[in-house]
Design a protein around this nucleic acid. Structure first.
Lengths: 257, 257
DNA sequence: GGAATAGTGTCTTTTAGACATTATCAA
DNA sequence: TTGATAATGTCTAAAAGACACTATTCC
């Protein structure tokens, strides 16, 4: 596109002060918490880390939640929550990003909580260790239960989890996120299984390989191979490359959309 | 992928209450505000709506900001801010979505503000009308100024604007967002100019047309044409279709990535 | 007719999908 | 050898990119 003439305020005009505004009116103060949707792959299934929360009249599984300290950054609060639950501090081949924010009424009428949801993705190794009762639950199981209206997670939290899963599925297409779900080093088969598990679809081995290796900066060969096992040719080992975004993307099979 | 055996807690096991946790510790209370990055196309340029904010030692352009009321939803606060600035209430061919959240220190030391950034996209018609000094500034101008370190927007706010622009650019690829930036009805040339302006790249007329019309649910022909102007064939008119996500996406030219 | 804008046809290159084949290990 | 897993080759179909061409309007 040819550069059109600048008809909006010119750079110099930007610097003159037209007028003062007064936007600051009544502000509501709320408690601020981070909720973390931690996803990993456990035994070939996509799993989310939840904690059991006892309540009057039963209980439910809930997301990791931590109130933000007065001098704490949001990202830092999310990281601390991961460390507190016993997962290695990131980054050790993991990924943590903001998901979305909602301001729901607090437990006491009148009080409100702003909860900033985060999405965390960890390689398979991680086992939570904490005084709290934290467990990996298969997303597929929860989805089936939710379809029956028997989801053991509060609806708003389940919505956040579903958003996180969808975000992860989408980002596999156009980012190097999948390498964050692999232990390092990994084989192309490992990486492919991540895609297959998160997307819930089989990928053609040859086409996947062609695509991954032709995407610059996605993976880097180590020049080593896996130790020979009982049967099977040893596989080439790789580590994550410098690329963060992928273009063109790894195409996601249509039925899973 | 064949369904693996469920090795994580079974649906029935999910319903038993293992243990109670106590996550609620010291909570910090913060003022909650929404910042809205409103983008539109003005005179062939991508523009963002900013207000002039007078401060000690000069002033700067700032995002629309509104503190959330005690009983107000975040989305509602963002909508209200748009109405307050004199832009027609959505949806009238517009789009509003959450961008991201940051918790920065407040103006007084020790106080903090959680600001939830929203991204709004409006068709060209909109002119702000308000007691506040609000103006459309060309994103390209701001980008050039920022490159010189002379950006008249505070750094954290400029980062949010840049995020919003990048989000808009990305979403044009795989969503029907562009139709929200067109007045209704629109021609394919109008729609194409939206893509060209936001992406800052020329698109081939024939290929764009083929792609848009072959994407199911993106646009719907009205069977009418534009009034004949002085020179030029009248163009077919369209309105937005029901599709919200596009697969396959409209490919973005590589140099702009 | 010319100028201006809208719309069409078609060829080439690239990419994706399907699937057969070869390679390298252990037992 | 067989069984198992990794890696490669190749054909076909679909999509993207380039670009020449036709159509409809006002002057």
């Amino acid at each position: 596109v040819s550069e059109p003439a600048v008809t909006l305020p010119s750079p110099d005009a930007l610097l003159g002060p037209p007028e003062v505004d007064a936007v600051y009116d009544a502000a509501a103060f709320m408690a601020v918490a981070v909720d973390v949707v931690v996803l990993t792959i456990r035994r070939g299934q996509l799993a989310v880390l939840l904690v059991w929360r006892q309540q009057e009249g039963g209980g439910s599984w809930a997301l990791l939640r931590r109130f933000v300290l007065p001098d704490e950054d949001l990202d830092a609060a999310a990281h601390r929550e991961l460390e507190d639950i016993g997962l290695a501090s990131l980054p050790v081949g993991g990924h943590l990003e903001q998901l979305r924010t909602c301001a729901s009424p607090g437990r006491d009428p009148g009080t409100r909580v702003v909860s900033v949801a985060y999405l965390g993705l960890l390689p398979e190794l991680s086992e939570p260790q904490s005084s709290r009762e934290a467990r990996w639950l298969a997303v597929a199981d929860l989805t089936h239960l939710a379809a029956d209206g028997r989801c053991p997670v509060a609806l708003d939290q389940w919505t956040i989890i579903a958003d996180g899963v969808e975000r992860a599925r989408a980002k596999l297409e156009y980012s190097s996120l999948a390498t964050a779900l692999c232990d390092e080093p990994f084989t192309l088969a490992d990486l492919r299984r991540v895609y297959e598990t998160v997307w819930g679809a089989r990928l053609d081995v040859a086409n996947f390989r062609r695509k991954v290796l032709s995407t610059p900066g996605l993976v880097e060969p180590l020049g080593r191979r896996t130790a020979p096992a009982s049967g099977g040719r040893p596989a080439e080992l790789y580590r994550p490359g410098p690329a963060r975004t992928l273009h063109p993307p790894i195409p996601r099979p249509v039925p899973a959309r």
